[in-house]
Design a protein around this nucleic acid. Structure first.
Lengths: 181, 181
DNA sequence: GGCTTGTACTTGCATCTGCAACAAACCCTA
DNA sequence: TAGGGTTTGTTGCAGATGCAAGTACAAGCC
């Protein structure tokens, strides 16, 4: 018997697929263009700053940050290079493990983030949320929320590693401080 | 009085925003990785071939193709360069307007596209549609379909230009053929 | 202690992408 | 038919990004 490939998309499926691709494309492009034009931040850069601002002590190890910002390790290294050159982020060594680097939000970084936040927020509203009713919002979460499951799991895992490592690191540094004192 | 920025996102809005970003990211990355690994085609390359295959005479002018594939003109020029080097696409001059270039699908291009189609289809099902009920599918289209409005308008416009130009071009070429004959 | 294995980041290299400048061709007008 | 303005595609250049290799360090084992 003939080996059958997957069934072709029917109209409904095609529409759903295209809706996801096109709407994302549209929203992201506009958001990115506005953020870049008005505040000189790329979307990945904004996300890095935003994640740092929400992290304890406003710092994250590079590996965790890469997972959050959905960047490769090398991509993150270069982005942090760039942000550091602009003074928005600083690199700190971890006392407990010399391999680990913490990216730390600087006051300038926080300031830039706060100036970019309304632009980002406005864009998200204007290009996405303003076009959705509450019901549509919920439907979107219902339909797509499950899909990002693994992504969220990755983030959660990264968070755990982060928290554990941070605790360990703090402990080690405290011990070091005691010894030094 | 204080200048108020836009209202911060509430939980529902945040969830919708993240659902869109994460799910798209997830689906696209996997799809692209599979297509690249199994058939040696990037997603933009696949889209170019797919659009050509659906076009009359399996050809489109560069400008129309750029709109369809959501690429800048220069990006498309280089992608078509690459596809042409692989023999999947050919460049044809337009008889009526020497500025216009048609990208034409070659038999090899069609063959490659047909081999990639099931991979693409499987990916779309596996990473997106299999996770959606019919109701969720419809809800997605309802919520996001409107957003892609302008994108669709652009495509429609490109199509009209395309059709008009093709007709004009065909007419000119026919006339030329008559003269030559 | 010294060796092996694994982890965390960085760098070399190649690719993709877009903007701006460019060249060629077209169209309209005088 | 010469000139000005427009359209179409291509190229120069710069930036972003990822994979694979490299470096530095840590952890477990002899």
């Amino acid at each position: 018997m003939a080996v059958q490939g997957p069934r072709p998309l029917d109209e409904r499926e095609m529409a759903a697929w295209h809706a996801l691709i096109r709407s994302h494309n549209r929203v992201i492009r506009r958001l990115e263009a506005e953020l870049e034009a008005e505040r000189g931040l790329s979307l990945p850069a904004y996300e890095v700053l935003a994640h740092l601002s929400e992290a304890p002590e406003q710092r994250l190890r590079m590996s965790a940050l890469a997972v959050h910002a959905v960047l490769s390790p090398s991509g993150l290294t270069r982005l942090v290079d760039k942000l550091a050159r602009e003074g928005l982020v600083r690199r700190d060594r971890c006392g407990a493990d010399a391999r680990v680097i913490y990216a730390v939000l600087t006051p300038e970084g926080l300031e830039r983030l706060e100036s970019a936040y309304p632009v980002h927020l406005r864009g998200v509203r204007e290009h996405l949320l303003d076009h959705l009713s509450e019901q549509q919002c919920d439907a979107l979460v219902d339909a797509l929320g499950g899909l990002s499951g693994i992504g969220q799991a990755d983030c959660a895992a990264a968070n755990e590693v982060e928290v554990a490592a941070a605790a360990e690191c703090d402990a080690a540094e405290a011990a070091l401080a005691d010894t030094t004192a």
